[in-house]
Structures are given as C-alpha cells and as structure tokens.
C-alpha cells in the first residue's frame, strides 16, 4: 500500500492541482455572478505586498514619462491656448442659451436641488500596476478598503469613465477597465438618446451595440452613460463614435467607440465613493455582517420599482438595471 501511494503520489498531485485550478475558476465565476465577496486572505496579502513594490517600480517610469509629456505639451501650448480660448467662448455662448432655456422652463431650480442631493465624493488614486497579459484589461490602484474603496465603486478621470473596482485589499484595489471583455455599460448617444450597451472589445476600442437596429447615430457622436445599468451615474463620458458598422446580417447595429479616456496613458484616477444601486444591492446582500460600513458617501439603494430590465452579460459587468443617479 505505501508503495502504491508512493508510485501514485506524483500523478495524484498533478491531477489534484489541475482540478483545484478548474474548480477555482468555476467558483470564481459564481462569485462574479453573485456580485463578489471579500477577497480571501491570501489574495489580499498578495495584493498588499504587490501594490507598494509595483509603485516603487513604476515611480521612476512615471517620472520619465512625465518629463517627456511636459516637454511635448510645452511645444503646443501656444496654439492650444488660442484654440481653447475660442472653444471657451463658444461653450460660454451655448451655456447661456441652455441656462436661458432651463430658466424659461423652470427646470433650473430642480436641477440645482438634485445636484446638491447627489454630490459624490471622489478619492484620488494612483495606478501602480497594469495587467501584463493583453487578454485582461485591469489596473491596480494604491487605494483600498482602508480608504473606503469598495468593489463596485466606479473609477473616473476628468475626461470620463475608466472602469469599476472589482476587488480590494486594505491598501490596493483591482479595477476592471472599460476595455475588458467582461465590461459592459448601459449607454446613450448624447445627441439622439439612442440607447444600447457599450462593451469592451479587449482592444483599444469599445463596441456600442444598439437596442434598435436603425438607431440615430453618426460618426463623431459623443456617447455617455445612461445611468440605467446601476453601476455608473448618468451622463459620464464614455467616448466618441469613430465608425459605424453595417447592420446587414445582424440583429443590432454596432458602432465603434474611441474611449474618452486615454487608458494607455493613465496615471491618476478618481474613485467615486458611492456604488451604483445595482452594485450596492449585490454587494450588500453578499457582504458579511459588519462589512457593510462603507464610506460616508455610500447611499442606500433606491426603491426597486425604479429598476429596469436585466442586461447582465456573462461575467457580470453591468448587471440588472437600477435607478439613475445624477452626474457628480
């Protein structure tokens, strides 16, 4: 018997480890679908150790990149100044017209009141690491649960959406970028309000899949979040339509969208310290007792009657629809 065990020990370990990795994937998929659970201790420990070291490694890289970028920016500062001054004058004029229209219709006070109610706190965070495999688009941030960051918090820059936090340790947070294959965001064309889902293509572009085949969309249209997915607030910029694909042979129309944020040049981002209603419901139902205490800005979920149809893609990015939240 000991001889048999000795002979079979090696193959048994091989089969066992292969099985463990497969079972881990099945369980992790279920975890993603259920909205996530806190990271196991060993994963959190690896993140805790990795994040500061990666930060040390990336600091000189960022320094060199910063000097180069500053130099390039300086070269075009004069022409940019003239162009921006013209643009500012145009926007001020437009703004005046919109304000006039809002005052006339009596919407201005209501919009102002709503904005006060829905102000969302932002936490600046630095990117310390990137996923090295091109098949997954995720980043590692230097802020974690100790800073109030929770899985499900949207991550943005001044230009638009970056992604969503998927897991946190005490001082680090894994964030899935918009470009990831698992990412899907409920979105609208800003001009025509044509609605659909913006999915990550795993490359440097996004794919906007419209709900209606003959949607009103043209190249150059801005695409923003609809707020109906329950993860991101309404009105955040996703990108600009760069190509419209022929709908022949397809049930839906698809447009290619260039992300508003240059996700390859990211250094600093902002974590929105409030989860969307869908994420709040998912994580709240999964979190153990005592783990619910998030940052002060975390709001309670909205009434369920505001929820819309389910749009959950496999792997769960934007899950079922929730109530809209006004932009920060």
């Amino acid at each position: 018997m000991p001889d048999l065990l000795k002979r079979l020990g090696g193959p048994l370990i091989v089969v066992l480890l292969l099985l463990v990795s497969i079972v881990s994937m099945v369980l992790d998929r279920r975890r993603v679908e259920d909205g996530g659970r806190p990271l196991p201790w060993w994963q959190a420990t690896i993140l805790e150790v990795t994040a500061p070291i990666e930060r040390l490694i990336s600091a000189p890289i960022d320094g060199v990149k910063g000097i180069y970028r500053d130099y390039v920016d300086l070269l075009s500062v004069r022409s940019d100044n003239v162009r921006l001054a013209e643009r500012l004058a145009e926007i001020e004029s437009e703004n005046m017209q919109f304000r006039e229209a809002l005052v006339t219709s009596g919407h201005l006070e209501r919009v102002a009141a709503m904005r006060d109610e829905t102000e969302i706190a932002m936490l600046p965070a630095e990117i310390v690491g990137l996923d090295v495999t091109p098949w997954f688009r995720s980043i590692l941030l230097d802020r974690g649960s100790e800073h109030g960051v929770l899985p499900g918090n949207p991550v943005v820059t001044q230009d638009g959406i970056v992604g969503v936090v998927t897991a946190t340790s005490a001082h680090a947070a894994k964030t899935m970028l918009l470009l990831d294959h698992q990412s899907a965001v409920d979105a609208v064309v800003q001009r025509s309000r044509a609605r659909g889902i913006v999915r990550g293509a795993g490359r440097e572009i996004l794919e906007f899949e419209f709900f209606v085949r003959e949607s009103d969309v043209v190249v150059g249209d801005d695409v923003v979040t609809s707020g109906l997915g329950g993860i991101y607030p309404k009105g955040l910029r996703l990108g600009r339509v760069s190509e419209i694909r022929e709908a022949t042979g397809q049930l839906t129309q698809i447009a290619v969208v260039r992300p508003a944020v240059d996700l390859g040049q990211l250094e600093q981002v902002f974590v929105m310290m409030r989860r969307g209603p869908t994420m709040e419901l998912l994580y709240r139902s999964n979190a153990p007792e005592g783990d619910l205490a998030g940052p002060a800005a975390v709001s309670s979920p909205p009434p369920l009657h505001e929820a819309g149809p389910s749009m959950a893609p496999s792997g769960g990015a934007e899950a079922s629809a929730g109530a809209e939240v006004a932009p920060p």
């Binding site: 020990g9 090696g10 370990i13 091989v14 480890l17 463990v20 990795s21 497969i22 079972v23 881990s24 994937m25 369980l27 992790d28 998929r29 993603v32 060993w42 994963q43 690896i46 993140l47 990795t50 690491g129 996923d131 090295v132 495999t133 098949w135 997954f136 688009r137 995720s138 590692l140 998927t166 894994k174 899935m176 990831d180 698992q182």
Partner: peptide, 26 residues
C-alpha cells in the same frame, strides 16, 4: 512534482493580481 507545485503557486499568485478568473492563469 516540486516544479509542478511551484508553478501552481506562481499561477495562483498571478491570478491574485490579474483581472482573470481565480485559477485561470494557474
């Protein structure tokens, strides 16, 4: 076998910092 176990540990460590499913890189 020891090489196999080492590879499994490094694979799971990669999964911890990557956006993959736990066990995928492993």
């Amino acid at each position: 076998i020891s090489g196999f176990v080492l590879s499994a540990i490094l694979g799971f460590a990669m999964d911890a910092v990557s956006g993959s499913l736990l066990g995928q890189h492993a």
